[in-house]
Amino acid sequence: MDMDKFNSAVEAFNATTHGSTDYYQDDVFIMLEEEKYAPLSYLKKKVENFQADFLIETGFIYDSFELVGQDNFQDWYEKQFSRKLKRSQAKKILFLHLPDNKKIFDAIETVNKCYETLRDQRILFNGKKLPVQLGEWYAKCIFGLMQEKSTSQRGFDFTLGDKRVEVKVQWGDATSPKGVKLRKSLVDLSDYVIIIYMAKNFMIREVCFLDSSYVSRKFASKGHTVFLKDSEINSYFFSRSAKHKDKVVNSNALMKYSLPNFAMKLTENFEK
């Protein structure tokens, strides 16, 4: 297949609108890096010896529109075909596109170097996700937790003096409406529950320190899972209460790794 003719065909499709055609029914669209699209059926007609398998062999990959989003596609679709993109159609659409492998490789190298630094500084120890391990490290720094190898399959246990601590890391700029998910058995085995709410940029956006007995009593569950909704525990958030400020042993770490807005609230509450 001639790739120059392939690229020219995609360009030609984007040079005009196609409201009178049935190309809007296609489930697979070729996507070029310039964010130009063309239906697969169109390219099969216009490009001699066109084969999707050949594109895949050269590095193209499939991605679901529902998965990757691709913000400008809906506008492009509606302009090209003079019709709304129905939800039922959007759920079926796939993109066949060529990733920027150089950018990906460079990013992997950067992430690897970052991971090496975090391992050297004894922040990362095992195969847990970076946000989880980083959040646990924040908890260790802020509250002076001890982290010991567990005799169970959990990996490591956290302790504060002679008290066992369950540390939960919630990564994201907002908490799920369901709340923070905890395993009831782990809450029952611990004395305290510490929740580190970490923003997507890896900075702390909130901290919550709870007595495990309070969690077990207030959030009694018939199942194996406890969900802590923000609205039900926000009176214990560090941004709102200094109730557990005596548990903080390293306030500098807390301030240093917090988002600016959260740090300001900490200053207000912890100075009361």
Rank of each mutant, 00 (worst) to 15 (best):
T21V: 06
D53Q: 15
Q70E: 15
F73D: 05
A38P: 00
I93F: 02
N112A: 14
I104Q: 12
L55C: 14
E48F: 11
L43W: 01
K86R: 09
A52D: 13
F125G: 04
K86S: 06
D63L: 12
P39N: 02
D26L: 04
I30C: 00
G19D: 06
L94N: 11
I30F: 01
F50Y: 15
A52Q: 13
K91P: 02
G19H: 07
N126M: 01
K84H: 05
W137V: 05
K92I: 09
V111G: 03
E148A: 13
L67P: 00
D27F: 09
K86C: 01
I123F: 07
R119G: 05
M31H: 06
M31E: 09
Q133S: 09
E48T: 15
Q70Y: 13
T21C: 05
S64Q: 02
F60M: 04
Q25D: 10
E57N: 06
Q70T: 15
E33T: 10
L40C: 07
T21I: 10
Y62Q: 08
N49Q: 11
Y115W: 11
T58A: 04
G69V: 03
L32P: 05
L118M: 12
T110G: 03
L85E: 00
K140V: 06
I61P: 01
Y37G: 07
M31Q: 12
K113W: 08
E35V: 13
Y42A: 09
L43I: 03
C114L: 13
C141P: 02
T117P: 02
N101Y: 15
E33H: 10
I108L: 09
E66M: 12
L40D: 10
T110F: 11
Y62S: 07
K91C: 06
L94W: 04
N126W: 02
R122D: 09
G59K: 01
D22N: 09
E33V: 04
M31P: 00
L96E: 03
L85R: 00
K140M: 14
F65R: 14
L124D: 05
L94C: 05
I104N: 07
L40V: 12
D100M: 11
L134Y: 05
D22V: 07
F65V: 10
K128A: 09
L124K: 04
K113R: 14
V47Y: 01
D75Q: 14
K140S: 07
Y24R: 06
K46R: 15
M31A: 11
T21E: 08
D63V: 09
E116D: 14
M146P: 01
S150N: 03
F60I: 01
K36E: 12
F95K: 07
C141G: 10
V68Y: 08
A38H: 00
E109G: 05
S20N: 11
W76D: 09
L124N: 06
A52Y: 04
G127Q: 11
K129I: 01
E66P: 02
K129Q: 07
K149D: 07
R119P: 00
N112V: 13
R87P: 02
Q89W: 00
L43A: 04
E34V: 10
W76F: 15
A139T: 01
S64N: 02
E33L: 09
F125D: 05
L43H: 01
C114T: 13
K129L: 08
F73E: 04
W137F: 15
